[in-house]
Computed example of a mutant assay.
Amino acid sequence: MKLKGIQKIIGGTVSAMMIAASIPAVASAADQQDRGNIGGYDYEMWNQNGQGQVSMNPGAGSFTCSWSNIENFLARMGKNYDSQKQNYKQIGNIVLTYDVEYTPRGNSYMCVYGWTRNPLVEYYIVEGWGDWRPPGNDGENKGTVSLNGNTYDIRKSMRYNQPSLDGTATFPQYWSVRQTSGSANNQTNYMKGTIDVSKHFDAWSQAGLDMSGTLYEVSLNIEGYRSNGQANVKSVTVSTDGSGGGASSNDWNQGQEQNNDWNNWNNGQQNNDWNNWNNGQQNNDWNNWNNGQ
């Protein structure tokens, strides 16, 4: 099932999309949407067709959210850079830190999310998921990168004639997905970490993915598809001077991974590998996530 790329984008500076810029082409009249800026952070809650029960309570660099019986739901918070019209390298050394209590019950994930323009690209850095590891079997393998104590698989997938930041378009999606999820399904996961976002972008560039476009946003995103769940984002920060700190490695294709996964630090949880995560999972594909967007 492809977690829909969320074509809703943070537009706090502009009008405020948390990752959800106000893209009229994205949300239908029936969609439930709430956007704003608080304490310098852009946020958005989006609920497809207004289905089920949802909530998002934003603070300055924090929010809580919950969802049940939904089609597709997202809550996100971060920084919008659209007005700067600059490439990520011009903006600075972008680092996002998070401290989250995340409870997925079904198909859901927690990630860093955003877009670039010229070229139009949608991107994800996935830290944890519920019962389905995105993007499934979709797309091309582009290698791995080890950063902040975790190893990520890099993938590229394509969206054809789908809603986007700039209306209906064909565009690529770039992914960094942790080889070992920082979360488990049907339990509260205490997740805390640092993501050197610019170094993921560097790795994608080295893998042949085009990151020359102007950066639209960098946000922490909680998303659910036909599932239930909740999250308490106790803090999220986005800096452009590298002050989030703590990159353990930025070597391309480095295979070594430090054993400092947050769940190991806090709960002694087992490192469930990809095969364990997917045993018995439904063959939900990416297009299902985007249907109706």
Rank of each mutant, 00 (worst) to 15 (best):
K4A: 11
Q7Y: 09
G11E: 05
T13Y: 09
S15C: 10
A16P: 13
A21Q: 12
I23R: 10
I23K: 11
P24I: 04
A27V: 05
A30V: 07
Q32F: 06
Q33T: 12
D34V: 04
N37P: 01
Y41H: 09
D42T: 12
D42I: 03
W46D: 02
W46G: 01
Q51A: 12
G52L: 03
G52S: 06
N57T: 05
A60R: 06
W67T: 05
S68T: 06
N72V: 03
N72G: 06
L74P: 00
M77L: 14
G78C: 13
S83P: 00
Q84W: 09
Q84D: 13
Q86L: 13
V95M: 15
T97M: 09
D99Q: 13
T103M: 12
P104C: 05
P104E: 04
S108L: 01
T116P: 03
E122L: 03
I125N: 08
V126S: 11
E127P: 02
G130D: 09
D131M: 08
R133I: 03
R133L: 01
G136T: 02
N137M: 04
D138P: 02
G139V: 01
G139A: 01
S146F: 00
S146D: 04
N148Y: 03
G149W: 01
Y160D: 10
N161A: 07
N161M: 08
Q162T: 05
Q162K: 03
S164N: 08
L165N: 07
A169N: 10
Y174T: 01
W175D: 01
W175P: 01
R178D: 09
S181Y: 00
A184W: 10
N189A: 08
N189Q: 06
M191A: 05
D196I: 00
V197W: 05
H200L: 09
H200A: 07
F201C: 11
D202E: 14
A203M: 08
A203G: 03
A207V: 02
G208K: 01
D210K: 03
D210Y: 00
S219R: 11
Y225Q: 13
Y225A: 07
Y225C: 02
N228W: 04
N228L: 03
A231Y: 10
S235F: 06
T237Y: 04
V238R: 15
V238S: 13
S239Y: 07
D241Q: 05
G242L: 09
S243H: 05
N250Y: 06
N250S: 12
N250G: 07
D251A: 08
Q254V: 01
Q254C: 06
Q258D: 11
Q258K: 04
N260G: 08
N260F: 02
N260D: 05
N260W: 03
D261P: 10
W262Y: 13
N264K: 15
N264P: 04
N264R: 15
N266T: 14
N267G: 15
G268I: 09
G268A: 13
Q269C: 09
N272T: 02
Q282E: 11
N291P: 02
G292H: 11
